[in-house]
Design a protein around this nucleic acid. Structure first.
Lengths: 211, 211
DNA sequence: ATCCGACACTAAACGGGAATCACCCAAACG
DNA sequence: CGTTTGGGTGATTCCCGTTTAGTGTCGGAT
């Protein structure tokens, strides 16, 4: 077992990751840890250990820790964007599209709490803002897809108060608030999640949109 | 300058804070830094330097860093609670009381962004939950004051959907979401804050409460 | 065949965080 | 006078993200 068959004399070293598959290994390991233990728990050293490589090696493939986790998050948010685009193209009422998108948004947040926190709850301390560029752009495109139908509704004169802009932002914020609280305070006496989502959506849409 | 008049031979040492005023000094210095630079920026060492004392000294008066910052936050939240109690006793319609409380809540968050983030956005990583005991209890009492008038409304059969519990949680969450986003993403193209708050409140109340 | 440069990788170190340790001094009390 | 005691300290521990300097290996060009 201590015999290294074809390795001359430096044994413990992990063979070079041919092609760029090492990068993928790192992302996979990082994702597992990040999902399980969150931003603070996903240490550079822990990720490196999981891959079986020195911590310095990660810097061969990524600028810094945030780039790793943001790249993971990009993946997840890309899926959310795809869902939004899909919904945007369905031939149904604008209000129905809005509702579906917000439901998908909240489900995404609850399914990917750590990613959600990283991207949407990151205090300005934690991530230095320029790094987020790509991720932020994805988030923007999600929001753009979402605000499309809202502006349809506004253009049709069906908005009871506020502009299309403020309505879109308020709807987003309300859903964000709900999932953010559910994620950060999971032990509170919450009403059933389905009911909270339903009351949020029906309440706000009924309050903002005339039919 | 190098001569210490009455200090025999150990010069640089700061005289003992008689009574318990050293504790107050620490809290004051910590608050200033915390407000200016947030949770991560308020380092034990920085606080100690500001007081003119070694970092170890802080541990004489506080169990750990979180206890210092949470104690500061308790103060702020105590004020919010006082406001809520005051509003709760006014002889006006329950819906009006709800509206006033939520407005006060959002204003509080925007005026004390770092405290707000520490208490209401703290990821479960950051603060270990038991430490929060006192602060959490204050927050609970705020919520209790707030859910009082909501249950009045529910008891009067004026709720369009959901129970009193879910309505209270949804209203809170919507306001939380708005201020949380405004705080963490201050550079976005937000509609004017006053309008966002107005649309959130009027939209949700109109959607949830029948008159 | 041999050299060479590029590359993936490593061990060790740095600076800075929170927290702890083993002391130390001055005043208060007897 | 001790002696106790409690606020104070410098050095240390441990972990973090990141950097530095060096090392082994591979793919060509000579």
């Amino acid at each position: 077992m201590t015999v290294a068959l074809k390795k001359p004399h430096k044994s413990a070293r992990k063979p070079k990751g041919d092609g760029h598959l090492r990068r993928g290994e790192i992302l996979a390991a990082a994702e597992k840890i990040f999902i399980a233990e969150g931003y603070a728990g996903a240490t550079i050293r822990k990720i490196a250990d999981a891959v079986g490589v020195s911590s310095t090696a990660l810097y061969m493939h990524f600028r810094d820790k945030d780039q790793i986790l943001l790249e993971i998050s990009d993946d997840a948010i890309g899926q959310l964007l795809a869902v939004n685009v899909d919904i945007a193209h369905r031939p149904i009422d604008a209000v129905a599209r809005v509702k579906l998108m917000l439901e998908a948004y909240m489900r995404f947040a609850l399914d990917n709490p750590n990613t959600y926190q990283l991207v949407f709850c990151g205090s300005r301390d934690v991530i230095s803002k320029e790094k987020q560029a790509a991720t932020a752009e994805l988030g923007d495109r999600c929001f753009a897809e979402f605000s499309g139908p809202i502006h349809e509704i506004a253009a049709a004169g069906r908005l009871r108060t506020g502009s299309g802009d403020s309505a879109a932002q308020v709807l987003w914020a309300a859903c964000h608030g709900l999932v953010a609280l559910l994620i950060t305070m999971p032990d509170r006496n919450w009403a059933p999640r389905e009911e909270l989502m339903k009351v949020t959506l029906e309440g706000l849409l009924h309050g903002l949109v005339t039919d």
